[in-house]
């Protein structure tokens, strides 16, 4: 029993250490020179542009539903005029970044995990290695950076669409003019709401890219490990996002208040 615990603990530590080393390799390779701009742009296209539809629809519906859900409650308190402010604050501070990150974890982390996993299985990564090309620089750096930059952009877009969804939601029951709705939303927002939320999305994006690459890059040989890599990439990335969010809240509260 004790030995089982020790071995599983040491196994965990091995993985943790391995991830730290992988982070080190990633960091070293960013500044090594010969940055892969072409591949980076291709990844930005795949990660960012190709996710616009999914993220946009999700964002819009979140705002729409959130409004419909809060409106009756606030109405009973006679505080209906707080709907725009409430929707804006909850979306921009918390719901937007986290839900979009989770959606991206499902879409991007899994595809990166599967792609690198299958490259590993078909020995493409080894082929790069033995030809002295740098697989970390070409495959990992570009993907992680693309995620780190694109996920915040996607979140900004989703936040904007969520506010639009909120506006549509309010207008189903009442008539509120476009400019009044947005004036009210933005008057409730502070920079201390927007900036921490924006900063944490960079970490979410990094987590998505990193976990996807790590799981794919370290997948075992054999076809089923590709599926395994994709699956565990989604699971770990989602978990990381939630953990990072909890940490971000603490740090934000410490700094801002």
């Amino acid at each position: 029993m004790a030995s089982a615990i020790i071995s599983s603990f040491s196994r965990y530590m091995e993985i943790a250490g391995d991830q730290v080393l992988f982070t080190g390799r990633f960091a070293r390779n960013i500044f090594r020179g010969g940055f892969e701009w072409g591949e980076f742009l291709r990844q930005c296209y795949i990660v960012g542009y190709k996710s616009i539809g999914l993220v946009g629809i999700t964002g819009f519906i979140i705002g729409f539903v959130l409004t419909l859900q809060t409106q009756p409650t606030l109405k009973t308190f006679g505080a209906q005029s707080f709907v725009p402010s409430m929707v804006a604050i909850s979306i921009i501070r918390e719901i937007g970044p986290v839900i979009i990150a989770l959606i991206c974890a499902g879409k991007i982390a899994s595809s990166i995990g599967a792609e690198l996993g299958s490259m590993k299985v078909t020995e493409q990564i080894d082929a790069m290695e033995v030809s002295s090309a740098n697989p970390v620089q070409y495959l990992v750096v570009t993907r992680i950076l693309a995620c780190t930059i694109m996920v915040p952009l996607l979140t900004i877009m989703a936040d904007a669409l969520a506010l639009l969804g909120g506006y549509v939601g309010v207008n189903i029951q009442d008539h509120v003019s476009f400019s009044l709705f947005f004036r009210k939303s933005f008057s409730a927002l502070e920079f201390s709401d927007v900036m921490p939320a924006l900063i944490k999305t960079f970490f979410f994006g990094y987590a998505i890219g990193f976990v996807g690459c790590y799981k794919g890059y370290h997948s075992k040989r054999g076809t089923e490990s590709v599926g395994l890599a994709a699956n565990s990439a989604v699971v770990s990335a989602s978990l990381w996002i939630i953990l990072l969010d909890a940490i971000a809240v603490q740090i934000t509260n410490m700094i801002v208040y």
């Binding site: 742009l41 960012g48 542009y49 952009l153 904007a160 004036r183 933005f186 927002l189």
Partner: peptide, 26 residues
């Protein structure tokens, strides 16, 4: 692809700047 990425990036950054401006104006 480059053009699409460029448009997307510019558009979202503009959105962010608009948001910051609106908050700042208030």
């Amino acid at each position: 692809q480059k053009i699409k990425v460029g448009i997307f990036t510019t558009a979202t950054i503009l959105l962010l700047l608009t948001g910051i401006f609106l908050i700042g104006r208030n």
